[in-house]
Design a protein around this nucleic acid. Structure first.
Lengths: 144, 144
DNA sequence: ACAATCCCCAGCGATGAACCGGGGTATACT
DNA sequence: AGTATACCCCGGTTCATCGCTGGGGATTGT
């Protein structure tokens, strides 16, 4: 787990797609990138990852773009970061033989990761979108 | 938070120091490195970090070495990884202006980190040492 | 046909991780 | 005093990854 810039970009892009989900129209890389200030050629790669993992669908050709593969309430943040950070990063780290100390440390690491993952699994894309909307409403109220 | 090889080395080294804590005698880098199969010149740097953060004390010269600065029950895993990974990594990441989306994402990231940190803060060095001892007892029983 | 859009692959600069080496400095023992 | 034994500090090397850019190709609406 890294929770780096990469995951943040992906999440911001998916929030844009979630906002357009009801329209049924695809959203293009350029538009997403412009609205969230993400380098478009970089975002392209992240969306490709999300597509290969089945989180978004793509439509090629003119009038193409990207759509969420499911409803925003069916996509958890954990799925997103697992797509992006690659869940093979911790696949096999016990290349050296496992001493009791290493096993205990490893189990503790896993427990910490699990705690963070549980938080991410507890939020759906829609939850995030709603929290963003609430925050925007607050900004408007303060503006008045 | 990275929970990389670096932190694992540091934790293994501190477990060795914890096992020798009651003796009051310092333990040398070479010995720790040999017992845990850590490159000694690398471990030296990690112990230097732990010393600068006050987790261990060092004694120079012949018969020198390292000792825990406090009892193993007074050192949490969170302190250790914070020393090693450097707690300034997330100091100020809002270099670009904060859109509502970015704020929501950032808050969620913090919540996930907090969950992992809570796990690490819940364990002391002694807890880990005891779990290792229990595991070693089990290994002996299976061996018989 | 043609333009728009996604797709794939390749590379580049910067950063950090993991590690090694050299020379300095404090301490204990003789 | 002298020497061996440790820690101390600074720097360099190698390798992987991140963030990002570019060059073509494939597919689709008009």
């Amino acid at each position: 787990m890294e929770l780096s810039c990469k995951s943040e970009y992906a999440l911001l892009a998916l929030l844009e797609l979630a906002a357009h989900y009801q329209s049924g129209e695809p959203l293009q890389i350029r538009q997403i990138a412009a609205r969230q200030s993400i380098p478009d050629r970089y975002l392209e790669q992240l969306l490709a990852s999300l597509r290969r993992h089945g989180l978004v669908r793509s439509q090629r050709g003119a009038k193409g773009g990207y759509l969420l593969a499911r409803g925003p309430w069916q996509i958890t943040l954990l799925e997103i970061v697992d797509c992006i950070e690659g869940l093979d990063t911790q696949a096999e780290s016990h290349h050296s033989k496992a001493t009791p100390e290493k096993v205990v440390v490893w189990e503790t690491w896993q427990e910490a990761y699990q705690a963070a993952n549980a938080v991410l699994q507890g939020y759906s894309l829609q939850d995030l979108a709603e929290r963003r909307d609430a925050k925007q409403q607050l900004d408007i109220m303060y503006y008045i």
